[in-house]
C-alpha cells in the first residue's frame, strides 16, 4: 500500500474524532445563534421604533468583521480584559454563534416579512396579544420557510468552524495539520479533510431537507422570498 494511503488510514480515527468536535461546535453555534436570532428578527420587524436600528447595527457589526478577528478579539482580548476564563472551544461556539445570529436573524426577518399581513390580523381579531400571535402564528410559519436558508447557513458555519483551528480547538483542521506536519503527507491528509467536510456538508443538507419535508404543510407552496 502506498505510504500516503497508509498515513491517511492511520490518521482517520483521529480525524473522525475531530469531526465530532467540529459538529459539536457547529451545532452549538447554530443553536446559540438561533436563540439570539429569533428575538433579533422579531425585534427588527415588530419591535419599537428605537430598537430596530439597534438590531441593524448588530447585524452590520457582526457581518462586517472577519471571524478570525472576532476569535482573536474574544479569546485573547475580551476574555483577558474582563478576566473570564473561557476555553477555546467555548469562545469558538460563542463567536460563531454571535456571527451566525446576525445572518440567521436576516433569514428569519425575510421569512417573517414574506408572510401575508392577514395572518397577524386574523390572530389579533381573535383576541390574541401580539406576543401570542407571533409565537403561535407567525414564528411556526416563518421558521418553516427558513429551513432552506438554514441549510445554507449550516454549510457556511461548518466551513467557518475550521478557522477555530487558529485558537487550537481540536477540530478536523487542527488535527489534520498536526498529523501532516509530523508525517509530511500534507496533500493526502488535506484531501482527506476536504472529503470529510464534503460528507458533513452533504449529511447536514440532507438532514435539513428531511426536516423540511417532515414539517411541510400539505398543499402549501413555499414561495421564495
Amino acid at each position: 500500500m502506498p505510504e500516503s494511503l497508509l498515513a491517511v488510514l492511520d490518521a482517520l480515527p483521529y480525524l473522525l474524532e475531530g469531526s465530532f468536535i467540529t459538529l459539536v461546535v457547529v451545532l452549538g453555534a447554530m443553536g446559540f445563534g438561533f436563540c439570539l436570532a429569533v428575538p433579533l428578527a422579531v425585534a427588527q420587524v415588530y419591535g419599537p421604533r428605537w430598537l430596530r436600528p439597534l438590531v441593524a447595527l448588530y447585524v452590520w457589526f457582526f457581518r462586517g468583521i472577519p471571524l478570525l478577528v472576532f476569535l482573536f478579539l474574544f479569546y485573547f482580548g475580551l476574555c483577558t480584559a474582563l478576566d473570564i476564563n473561557l476555553s477555546a472551544f467555548t469562545v469558538a461556539v460563542v463567536v460563531l454563534g454571535l456571527i451566525s445570529a446576525a445572518y440567521q436573524s436576516q433569514i428569519f426577518r425575510g421569512a417573517i416579512m414574506s408572510l401575508p399581513e392577514g395572518q397577524l390580523k386574523a390572530a389579533r381579531a381573535l383576541g390574541m396579544s401580539d406576543a401570542k400571535a407571533i409565537l403561535f402564528i407567525i414564528l411556526p410559519q416563518a421558521l418553516r420557510l427558513s429551513i432552506p436558508g438554514w441549510s445554507n447557513e449550516y454549510s457556511i458555519i461548518l466551513k467557518d468552524s475550521a478557522v477555530t483551528y487558529a485558537l487550537g480547538v481540536a477540530e478536523i483542521m487542527a488535527r489534520t495539520h498536526f498529523v501532516a506536519t509530523r508525517t509530511y503527507q500534507h496533500m493526502p491528509l488535506y484531501a482527506a479533510a476536504g472529503a470529510i467536510f464534503l460528507v458533513l456538508t452533504w449529511l447536514g443538507i440532507r438532514g435539513l431537507r428531511y426536516l423540511e419535508e417532515k414539517v411541510r404543510i400539505p398543499g402549501y407552496s413555499h414561495h421564495e422570498f
Binding site: P116, G118, A122, L126, G127, S129, I217
Partner: peptide, 19 residues
C-alpha cells in the same frame, strides 16, 4: 384583547392560519 374576542371578524381572503 378581551374586546376583540367578543367581536368576530371574517376577512375577504379568509386569513386561515396556513400552518
Amino acid at each position: 384583547h378581551h374586546y376583540r374576542q367578543q367581536v368576530g371578524m371574517i376577512f375577504q381572503d379568509f386569513n386561515l392560519f396556513d400552518h
